[in-house]
């Protein structure tokens, strides 16, 4: 009888601890883990639009006869910034060696996904604007 009582006492004490840990831990983790999703506008002024492949703050802007397109420079493998190799005409990741076509299509390496295309918007001032999530 005493053993049973002790067992119930022990369970309720440990249950209380667990409940307390959850009650305190959940708000703490929620607080620490909260992040405001923000976006950043990247603007390419007209003088930065002449190159076939232009780069600014993590965005590649490609110009062709069909118009402009933009790609995120973040490698889809583990997030390093890819370099553009003008000789081979490919994007190359300096960390783990993934390669991509200028269209962003994956060619080789561990990434196994394409570079993320970004929306481009031609402004009345002639600037080209694109938005990246931070």
């Amino acid at each position: 009888m005493l053993e049973r009582r002790q067992f119930i006492k022990k369970v309720s004490v440990w249950g209380g601890y667990a409940l307390g840990a959850v009650a305190l831990g959940f708000p703490v983790l929620s607080f620490i883990g909260f992040r405001k999703i923000s976006e950043k506008k990247i603007t390419f002024p007209p003088d930065a639009q002449h190159a076939a492949v232009g780069y600014k703050e993590g965005v590649y802007l490609m110009s062709s006869k069909d118009g402009f397109s933009a790609l995120s420079a973040k490698c889809p493998h583990l997030g390093c910034t890819v370099n553009f190799d003008a000789v081979s005409g490919e994007f190359k990741c300096p960390c783990h060696g993934s390669t991509f076509e200028t269209s962003g299509k994956w060619i080789s390496g561990p990434a196994q996904r394409n570079l993320q295309p970004l929306p481009v918007k031609k402004m009345p001032s002639g600037d080209i604007e694109t938005v990246v999530k931070i």
Binding site: K74, H77, L78, G79, C80, T81, P94, C95
Partner: peptide, 10 residues
């Protein structure tokens, strides 16, 4: 910066 991003993504 790259080490931080790789760590974050892993």
């Amino acid at each position: 910066v790259f080490a931080a991003r790789i760590f974050m993504n892993i």
